[in-house]
Structure formats: C-alpha cells, structure tokens
C-alpha cells in the first residue's frame, strides 16, 4: 500500500473529480482544522471542493498544480472566518473558551486549536495582516514553495517573499529573546 501523493496530470485529475477529492481531502482538511478548528473546517472544506468543481473550467494547469489551486481556493474561504481564527489564537492563553464566544461551534474551535498553542506566538500570528498570515501558514503548515504560494494566491513571487519576511520578523520580535538563535544579536 503506497502512501505517496502523486500530483497527477491536471487534465486527468479534474475529469475524475471524485479522485481529486479522495487525493486531497485529508491534506486540505487538516490545514483548515489547524487554522479554524474542526467544526468550521467541515463547512469550509465542503465549500472549497464544491467551489473547485464549479470553477474547474477556469483552472489553468499551466499556472498551478491541482493541490496548489485547491490551497488557493480554501485560503479565500478561510478569510470569511477570520474572526474564528483570531479568536482561536487569542484563546490560547486563557483556560477555557473565550468569554465572548457565543456559539458552541466557536467554543469548540477555540478549545481544540488552543490545546498546543502558546500565547505570545499565537498573539503575534493573530496580529499579522491577512496576507502575511496566509503566506506564513501556507509555508509552515502546508509546505508550499514561494512559487506555489504565488500561484495559489494570485500574487507575485516578490510579494510572497516580502510578506513572509515581514511575518517572520514580527514573530521574532514577539518572541523577544526567547529564541536562542537570536540571542547574540542582543
């Protein structure tokens, strides 16, 4: 039983969309769970695959692989849930759900995402601009390259680089002297 995900030829992939779903569901779902928590993730992932199917005619294999294209779609949908994402990040230093979270869904999202998060870093990520956070998390969590992120988000290669640098600098600052690699810079 092989477990290597193979980026199949795009034309073939989109013809057999159920195979596309089977191939990328786990990865896309995990990425959204990481950003939004498991409750909202199911809605977002369902919408992402339906959107991808609807827009398949506009998919250009010359510009991006299917996986990259799906990350682009799902990233756009995550933006609609910015409050959930930020709330989950800010819930990190509280024990229990944020006091102002009205719905069960958001409480669960916050709790689950919070389990392994540390407050200062989480707060720094919450404070990033939307574009910076996208680039940071597509790099760190999804493992996309600069080229892929540029294709997924429809931005230039240079913009990917500058957003990632800014995001990393802000995080470094937020973590202060806690980073031993940075200790000798005083």
């Amino acid at each position: 039983m092989t477990t290597t995900p193979v980026e199949r030829p795009p034309d073939q992939s989109l013809d057999d969309f159920s195979a596309v779903f089977d191939a990328y569901f786990s990865e896309i779902h995990r990425y959204v769970v990481q950003r939004l928590g498991p409750g909202p993730a199911e809605d977002v992932v369902a919408e992402a695959f339906l959107t991808a199917f609807r827009k398949r005619a506009r998919y250009d294999p010359a510009k991006a692989g299917v996986r990259t294209w799906l990350y682009g779609i799902v990233t756009n949908l995550i933006h609609k849930h910015r409050r959930t994402e930020v709330r989950a990040l800010r819930a990190v230093d509280r024990h229990g759900p944020p006091a102002d979270a009205p719905s069960h869904e958001e409480r669960v999202a916050a709790q689950v995402s919070a389990e392994s998060l540390r407050p200062a870093l989480a707060e720094a990520i919450a404070r990033l601009g939307r574009g910076e956070r996208d680039v940071l998390l597509l790099t760190a969590l999804a493992g996309l390259s600069h080229e892929e992120i540029a294709a997924a988000l429809g931005i230039s290669y240079g913009t990917v680089g500058s957003r990632l640098s800014r995001a990393r600098a802000k995080i470094r600052a937020a973590l202060g002297g806690a980073n031993p690699m940075e200790a000798n810079h005083g």
Partner: peptide
C-alpha cells in the same frame, strides 16, 4: 529554532 518551526509546533498536528 526558527520561526517556521515554532509556528508548526504551535499548531501541532491535529488528530
């Protein structure tokens, strides 16, 4: 540890 690793560890790997 660089920032990207920190970020990955922060988010962990969901079950």
């Amino acid at each position: 540890m660089d920032e990207l690793t920190e970020v990955r560890e922060l988010y962990g790997r969901p079950d």
